[in-house]
Design a binder for these strands. Sequence first.
DNA 1: GATGAATGAGGATTCATTCAT
DNA 2: CATGAATGAATCCTCATTCAT
Lengths: 233, 233, 233, 233
Amino acid sequence: MSLSQFISAKKADVTAKRERRKEARPGELLDAALDLFVEKGFAATHAEEVAKRAGVSKGTLFLYFQTKEDLFKAVVRANISGRFQEWNDELAHYEGSTPALLRHFVTAWWERVGATRASGITKLMMSEARNFPELAAFYQREVVEPGQDLVRRILQRGVDRGEFRPMDTNQTVYCVLAPMIFLMIWKHSVGACVNSAHLLVPEDYLAAQMETLLHGVCLPQAAGAAPIPENKT
Amino acid sequence: MSLSQFISAKKADVTAKRERRKEARPGELLDAALDLFVEKGFAATHAEEVAKRAGVSKGTLFLYFQTKEDLFKAVVRANISGRFQEWNDELAHYEGSTPALLRHFVTAWWERVGATRASGITKLMMSEARNFPELAAFYQREVVEPGQDLVRRILQRGVDRGEFRPMDTNQTVYCVLAPMIFLMIWKHSVGACVNSAHLLVPEDYLAAQMETLLHGVCLPQAAGAAPIPENKT
Amino acid sequence: MSLSQFISAKKADVTAKRERRKEARPGELLDAALDLFVEKGFAATHAEEVAKRAGVSKGTLFLYFQTKEDLFKAVVRANISGRFQEWNDELAHYEGSTPALLRHFVTAWWERVGATRASGITKLMMSEARNFPELAAFYQREVVEPGQDLVRRILQRGVDRGEFRPMDTNQTVYCVLAPMIFLMIWKHSVGACVNSAHLLVPEDYLAAQMETLLHGVCLPQAAGAAPIPENKT
Amino acid sequence: MSLSQFISAKKADVTAKRERRKEARPGELLDAALDLFVEKGFAATHAEEVAKRAGVSKGTLFLYFQTKEDLFKAVVRANISGRFQEWNDELAHYEGSTPALLRHFVTAWWERVGATRASGITKLMMSEARNFPELAAFYQREVVEPGQDLVRRILQRGVDRGEFRPMDTNQTVYCVLAPMIFLMIWKHSVGACVNSAHLLVPEDYLAAQMETLLHGVCLPQAAGAAPIPENKT
DNA sequence: GATGAATGAGGATTCATTCAT
DNA sequence: CATGAATGAATCCTCATTCAT
């Protein structure tokens, strides 16, 4: 190793160590923040506690996130918003039937969000939306609308390909999303502190929901469902 | 009337008025507190605001409820009364088809609970369950389990009468309840502070859910649904 | 004393004691605040210190003044703004010559503001104006503009009555006010911490300023001054 | 050129550059600090901002000045240089009338100090004198007293030459200096953040002040002013 | 010497709770 | 019983200063 190589290696090393730390910090803080936000809610989570759990001081937290709201937004972005790109890509390149796509989407969502700590964020937003209008707006913009949009496009794909019967996709979107939202809320509220005799089994519940949903919205030729009778109620 | 008579009459009058109010006080406070807890959550609801809305002073609130937590617990307990007896009776004497019964149950629920202030209690419990585990257990015992039981018996009636296909009623129960729970929470959180382009219309949503549900779980002869294909995903 | 008299007297007494306290409080707080604001500046004055000096707790201060800025505004109103009514009345009813009026105004100002603690407020505003734009605007609105207006009307009175030569009153206003402002600043800065050999004697300084000013602006017939020569500079 | 030669040449170059910068550093820092202290006051000026404006890091600032107070003191000291020598010389060799000398002095002061950044120092001292008594004394000694002395000698020259009426020069000195001081403070406080309808025009204000001053203090034969009437007030 | 990440004391403000009246 | 003035612990955020690199 030449001298200059040695010198620059040394410097690189020093810098690297620092930068590794600096780059790791936000992640560690987001991690700690997610835990605490989910556990205690936005208002009841104290900045100092987040910092302590991440192993740094209060001041350091505010070095990386200007306010507690910013921290929250960053948590949402890191855990949810970021996923939509991925899903949009999958949707664009999916080649199978739309019922299969919908099942895939729900399964993937469960694995990547529903079953993870990130699911707590949704419960959190439902609880605190009214007290933090700006956060609510942010969440609506970054999560709710992209999510509804994604589902709407899936449903429309089914209609366009003659797999689903014509429908008001704007309303049906809620039939797809509501079970997921319900699941996240349930898990982080009642589910977190009660041992019921008949526990909710998320995967079974989701599968059941999807099947009842599909047999209701599918045309006969697509998923084998019968035509909907006209004499409703 | 002598002076002393006048005085004691006046005093008696004042006392009577006071006692009347005194007995009404806790109810008025619980009423005010329910509204505020639902609207803003536990932490963000200020004792003074509750008192003001009930028309008394802050001091009086703490005369009836030692702490804010006590007030919260009293609010939840006071609002979870026995509506189940009523429904159990209706179920026992219902003579129509089970799909019609289920539709009736959901409609009645929306009218008697979902559309009323009582729906706020559910939102409240979902939001604060983790902070009040003791209350969550109470809620589970007094509300969740009786509710699940009721629905389970409706579903079982359908299976027994050959209207519904055989199913794991313990899981399907959630398919009936989840939309209701979702609706209550949505209404009191996102629904209260976001002007989305595509608002959720509760009645439409419930009707749609019920139809997709029925066409998924009903046997062909019962509600005209097609047989469920065996090749699930 | 009858019973009812006794009763209402007792009640009145109790209430009175309380109210007397409640009414005295803001004054005590304003008093303490004025001292501290003048001594340490707005930013460096701590709410807790103000409260302590007034003999109450931090919380009590915020019971009477929502923010530190509000406290400051109240201090200004109590010590300066309130004076303008009084001066405007005096101006309206003054019957002597305008030079005498101007001398009266300056003397009165010195006695009622310049020589009192209130003078510190002006120095304070000069120091902190740029950091607290809202306070600066408030001060401009409540003090500077009414003050300039008052002086302008005095000058105009002199011109109208043929005592002063015609002038741009908007600029001359500063010739009257500047010595006062200078005095307040000097007194609360250099003057507060230096023992100069040749101390500024405010009364002498003001008198000298007024005389030079008058002999400059007065028409010959009014105060015996000569016409201003045209070859300035 | 060998490798080692290249390295040491490079190093020498770097070192030279560094040393050049190193010597300039404190000056750049003082320069940046002056601007900020004048603009925002001592407390509201942040170390980091000073460093950034000087193009160095926060750490470097504290390398040259142990504390923010030290920096403040250095700023004041660095900006109070000997402009008095220059003026004393001008005074000694001036051959015109004393009124003309006084006008010259005021005009020169405005051009060389009042209109420049140096005026900020005065505002700074007035604002912070009470927090830095030691500096206030220094300022008194190095600036205030020499300045008063200079003016006093001008006035005395007028009296001695029969141009000015006899006076207490110690007090009249303030009549000359106060407008200047007022102007510097006004400009850096109210003047910087208020859009008044009638803005102060420094040059006009100074000219007007000087004329009223001269016509008040001058004997008739000196500047054409009328005799001062004896019937004051 | 120079850097900038990290620190933590400090300050304004809130609000559940107490208690003299 | 009822009141509401008073309290002070608790919380977010800032920023001078330090120190490992």
